[in-house]
Structures are given as C-alpha cells and as structure tokens.
Amino acid sequence: MRYPQGGGLTAERRVFREDIRMQAAELFALGHDNAAVARQLRVSVRSVQRWHQAWEHGGTSALESKGPASRPKLSETLFAVLEQEPAKGPVAHGRPDQTWTLARIRTLIGRRFHKSMTLSAIAQMLHRHGFSHQVPARRATERDEEAVTGWVKETWPQVETPWRRSGPGSASKTKPASR
C-alpha cells in the first residue's frame, strides 16, 4: 500500500478504520465483551481491548480519527511557491547548467523555506504533485528530427560495441592468463 506524506494511512483507509471503531463503541454500549466484539468485527482482541479502554475513559469521541500520522514538510501554499522556483531555472539560483537534481532542490528548499528534507522525501513529494524525473517540459526548438534519425541509423551502430569478442573466449570465470 502506498501512503501519502511518506507514511500513515490514506484518508479512505482512516475513515474505514474509524467506522470499525464506531461499530465497536455501539457494541460496547450494548454490553458485548471484547472477544465477541473482536469476532464480529474481525479484528484482534488486543485492538478491541485498547478501544474499550479508550471508550470507557473518553466515550465515542476518544475513538475518532486524529488525522494523518505525519504532516507534509511543505504545506500546499509553500509547495505552490516552490513550484515557481524551478521555472526560473537553475542559473537564476546560481547553478552553472540547466539541470535540476534532488540535491539542488533540497538546497533550494533549505535556503528558501529554512526546512530540511531528505532526498527520498523530496522525490516522494514531487511525485505526489505530478512531477516525474527525466521528462523535459518541452522539446528544443533547434531539434532537427532528420539529423537525429540519420545519426541513430548511421553513426550509432559504429559507436556501439559488439556483444561478442572478436577473438576466442573462455568459459572459465577466471582469466586463463593469470595462472
């Protein structure tokens, strides 16, 4: 199961589990014991024991969902600001070339928002917002399709190394000459 915000449950799954806890609260109110509630709802007895204890101390409201386990590092408004920065280009941010890497985005987030994120968290955040790696936003206007096709057909086969050696080989994993 893939989780949003890098951990926890999806919103639908949280609602599903909260519904089960609310059904358990109704059964507690009717006087059912923990084992019967666990059997009926097809959950573990230990979970029902925790729910029952919370229900006794705080009522039905104690069984309500508390929301996602973790909050995203960048709010939607901060991400909207971050989204505008790469459009300016890496050169505008002091980089010598026109490529964005996760490390450069991490540096940008640190400088702009004073937040620290891991590279994997940045990759997950970008993926959640529809960004993908190695996909240019547009093709170069100078691109010559005929020249590219000609290069692939004529030059590339000469550059590509053959799969087999020209001389005799050996089935041994060690080099015969090294003995």
Rank of each mutant, 00 (worst) to 15 (best):
G89A: 06
G89M: 06
G89S: 06
P90G: 11
V91D: 02
V91R: 15
V91S: 07
V91Y: 02
A92I: 00
A92W: 01
A92S: 12
H93P: 01
H93D: 03
R95M: 13
R95C: 10
P96W: 04
P96C: 11
P96Y: 04
D97E: 07
D97P: 01
Q98I: 03
T99N: 12
T99M: 10
W100L: 09
T101I: 05
T101M: 05
T101D: 13
T101F: 05
A103E: 13
A103M: 04
R104W: 08
R104F: 10
R106I: 01
R106C: 13
L108T: 05
L108H: 08
G110I: 01
R111D: 13
R112N: 07
R112V: 06
R112H: 13
R112L: 15
F113Q: 03
F113N: 00
F113P: 02
H114Q: 13
H114M: 10
H114K: 13
K115S: 03
S116G: 04
M117W: 01
M117T: 02
T118E: 10
T118P: 02
L119Y: 05
L119R: 08
A121H: 04
A121S: 15
I122Y: 05
A123G: 14
A123E: 08
A123I: 00
Q124N: 13
Q124T: 11
Q124F: 03
Q124L: 12
M125W: 00
M125R: 01
L126F: 09
L126D: 07
L126K: 05
R128T: 09
R128Y: 09
H129F: 08
G130S: 07
F131N: 05
F131E: 04
F131M: 12
S132R: 15
S132C: 12
S132W: 04
H133Q: 14
H133W: 09
Q134I: 03
Q134M: 12
V135N: 07
V135Q: 14
V135W: 04
A137R: 10
A137K: 10
R138F: 13
R138P: 00
R139E: 11
T141I: 06
T141C: 05
E142F: 07
E142V: 06
E142R: 07
R143Y: 05
D144C: 13
E146K: 09
E146R: 11
E146T: 11
V148G: 01
G150W: 02
W151E: 11
W151Y: 13
W151D: 06
V152D: 07
V152M: 14
V152N: 14
V152I: 15
K153G: 04
K153H: 11
E154I: 09
E154A: 14
T155P: 00
T155D: 11
T155A: 15
W156S: 07
W156Q: 12
W156G: 01
P157T: 10
Q158M: 09
Q158W: 03
Q158K: 15
Q158R: 13
Q158L: 15
